[in-house]
């Protein structure tokens, strides 16, 4: 990971010095372990703040909407797909961007690491295969593959789909991954089971909207949950309101979600709301042969009509 950091700093310094971009968006070390935060560098002298490791799970495409300046952005596979989605949706111009592509080997799930040790974690470091965790009175080495975020362990687009410069050689894509095992399990339930499953899944939700705020797809000036005239959905903790929020939020991501995992990562109570967006991702793939953010040349299924679109649900 060290070589990634060096290369990112080198490219960022060059871009800022030459005036190719006015700002570079990357990551800096967070104030607590495993919580790197977005970092906006405008001066070539500040590039040493930029870093890269397995805790850069925040989706930086979230910071691009409607920007006017030239921007250099550090992008792993999913970020790059969300950048493509932004370009397709006219939220940013391709010419404004210099994409610093990062071939990604997956992001560490801080909850899995925290669950594997007892006590407060003070320091986490990693090499290619292992994650070393140090805290008060303990030290433990974990297999990196086993503490990856679930979406990363199922990812088949680790290399950026568009980039102007890569920080390293492309990494091999994972083969033979069963991406939708959990979705199929839910699909197989009868309505009653489904109802109870979602009830249980969402029971912890506090309606903080962290999932929405972390999501690069959620850029409406006024979100439907904040609107009060008309009020589309109740603002209470009532399970029906919570459920309506989660289902509608997911549907707004249909054909756009790249399963970057930013929503689940941001959730303070650890709800796996990715099962909703993954179901839509699966439907888009099976019914429309579509995967979000792979190309700027095709229009997404929700804004195109094809005579052979599946319509057997219309009676």
């Amino acid at each position: 990971m060290l070589e990634y950091t060096d290369k990112i700093r080198e490219i960022a310094a060059r871009l800022l010095k030459e005036g190719t971009v006015e700002m570079v968006i990357g990551f800096r070390k967070g104030t607590v372990p495993m919580m790197n935060e977005p970092c906006f560098v405008t001066d070539a002298g500040d590039v040493d703040r930029l870093i890269w490791d397995g805790n850069c799970g925040v989706n930086l495409a979230n910071y691009l909407m409607d920007r006017k300046e030239k921007i250099g952005i550090v992008a792993k596979g999913c970020d790059a797909r969300n950048i493509v989605t932004h370009i397709v949706e006219n939220k940013i111009d391709r010419d404004q961007l210099f994409i610093i592509g990062v071939p990604c080997t997956g992001m560490i799930d801080r909850r899995k690491v925290a669950a594997a040790v007892d006590g407060e974690i003070l320091e986490v470091s990693e090499d290619g295969h292992n994650v070393s965790v140090r805290g008060q009175g303990f030290e433990k080495v974990l297999n990196r593959q086993e503490v990856l975020q679930q979406n990363c362990s199922l990812c088949i687009h680790r290399n950026p789909v568009i980039s102007d410069e890569l920080v390293a050689e492309e990494v091999p894509e994972q083969q033979g991954v069963d991406r939708y095992a959990d979705v199929r399990r839910i699909e197989a339930m009868d309505p009653e089971e489904k109802w109870n499953f979602f009830d249980d899944l969402l029971s912890e939700c506090i309606r903080c909207y962290a999932c929405r705020n972390a999501c690069p797809l959620c850029y409406c000036p006024t979100c439907f949950v904040d609107e009060s005239r008309p009020q589309w959905v109740g603002k209470s903790q009532d399970p029906i309101d919570v459920r309506t929020f989660h289902f509608l939020r997911a549907y707004h991501c249909a054909g756009r979600c790249t399963d970057c995992g930013a929503c689940e990562r941001a959730c303070p109570v650890g709800i796996n709301m990715r099962v909703f967006t993954k179901k839509l991702e699966k439907d888009c793939l099976e019914k429309f042969g579509w995967e979000a953010g792979l190309t700027t040349d095709a229009r997404p299924p929700l804004d195109t009509f094809r005579p052979d679109d599946p319509d057997d649900f219309i009676k």
Partner: peptide, 12 residues
């Protein structure tokens, strides 16, 4: 989402 299939219908 846990609603019986018969409650939803699309027609043209």
């Amino acid at each position: 989402m846990g609603i019986e299939p018969g409650r939803i219908q699309f027609s043209w």
